[in-house]
Nucleic acid binder design. Structure first.
Lengths: 239, 239
DNA sequence: TGTGGTTTAATGGTTGAACCAATTTGAGAG
DNA sequence: CTCTCAAATTGGTTCAACCATTAAACCACA
């Protein structure tokens, strides 16, 4: 199976370069970046293209731009939004396992919250969609497809909770996970077991039992976590 | 006390206009926006300026742009990231209280997770910073300043958890809350009580007792929630 | 001495026109 | 009906110029 050729836009390459310098500390918090005219000249791109990259950095909370002054680097611990985590994973400067560990802890927190809230607030139509997703999982599927359905399941849980915050948060998280999709997809899984675990979540949600839904979710989460850490040959270090 | 004068960039106004049309359904999911040349002409701005706005919309997950094809509207329930919630609040089309309710439920979930994780993983230096924030709260303070410190407290809790995901998530949430800062700041509060409630969270975190930290956090959260709903003259509808 | 006004230089914001590159469309060949 | 390829459409990039804001230097005056 071939991978689709990825065309990289110029502005995207520019973005990555500046971003890398922020993450590795070349540009520190408080520093002022060279002027747009200088930067564009140095990188050999047009000022408009460079500006596109700067705008995205600003939106991510990595820099702040003020007309007449310049573009300054922000402390990303204080300002960066959740989508930055994906970029950091790709730069893999922090890939000592700490970030992965962090992600799995968050996954647990979010998963439980979704299960609980869905059990409390789901409507009839929600149940149908949840069941449909679980039944769609088959053993002949490619791993990437199973993974996609697991995301859809989380999304449908969020929708079932009827909480806009949860819905958008799941979307944000999905983008982060997409960054290390390959790694995740390399983890072998028993699709039958996954289907079974998710089905029991749906069952509890259907009964409206928040406690059982959380328990079922925990089982599913720990199964995935165990497999992942085994694949990574990484110890589960956190409590 | 004066408010700083807000200068609105052209591209920002363009952004708002298109965004509004997406939220109110004028542009539906799947629709193709008019071409950049058309839109810029119609709005009376330069194509580059318009493109800046489109780029931001794309980054938010509201549209997708493909060279040669065009710019298409996405279903924001499936694609929008968490930062969109702020924009939706401002457009206040959904301000029937539902979103506020959603936010408070999420606030509870996040708050507890932070308290628990901080109690488990905090270091000595973290405690000092947490204490410092709590002590900084005084009764003579303006409400906006108290509010800022409450955000700082959450941020420091996230830092204490040593979980990058939590840190960035708090940053994202902060941006959402900033959108309805005025409303939040209009809620009268007993700063002494707040200080006391937060202090007991710190105390539990210091002892490393996750259970107590969560309990203390719950007290603090429900105090703020009660006040807010009273101010809004809104019933707490959700379970 | 310092307070406020003015000038100047640097920086980002916006504009306009032109051309490049990807995609879609549809007429025409087979 | 299907395939091919040229044309039209759309976003991506470049170039050059000018506008708006900011900060710093300088100056006048009390």
């Amino acid at each position: 199976m071939f991978e689709p050729v990825k065309r990289v836009k110029t502005s995207e390459q520019v973005l990555k370069q500046i971003q890398a310098r922020i993450f590795d500390g070349t540009y520190k918090a408080g520093d002022r970046l060279p002027s747009e005219r200088e930067l564009s000249l140095e990188m050999g791109v047009n000022r408009n293209t460079l500006r596109e990259a700067l705008k995205k950095l600003e939106h991510m909370g990595l820099v702040i731009t003020r007309q007449g002054d310049g573009t300054r680097v922000l402390d990303f611990y204080d300002n960066a939004g959740i989508e930055v985590l994906g970029s950091m994973l790709l730069d893999e400067a922090e890939s000592d396992g700490r970030v992965i560990d962090n992600l799995f802890e968050a996954r647990e927190m979010v998963g439980k919250a979704l299960a609980r809230s869905a059990a409390l607030y789901r409507e009839e139509e929600d149940l149908e969609r949840l069941r449909a997703v679980v039944e769609e999982i088959t053993s002949e599927m490619e791993l990437q497809e199973v993974q996609r359905l697991e995301y859809v399941f989380f999304h449908e849980l969020a929708v079932s909770s009827h909480n806009l915050f949860y819905i958008f948060m799941v979307n944000s998280i999905k983008k982060v996970y997409m960054s290390f999709r390959d790694l995740y997809a390399a983890t072998s899984r028993d699709t039958g077991k996954i289907q079974e675990l998710l089905a029991s979540v749906v069952e509890a949600v259907e009964r409206g039992s928040a406690g059982d839904a959380v328990k079922a979710m925990r089982k599913y989460l720990s199964y995935g976590k165990r497999l992942m850490f085994k694949t990574l040959k990484m110890p589960m270090r956190r409590k």
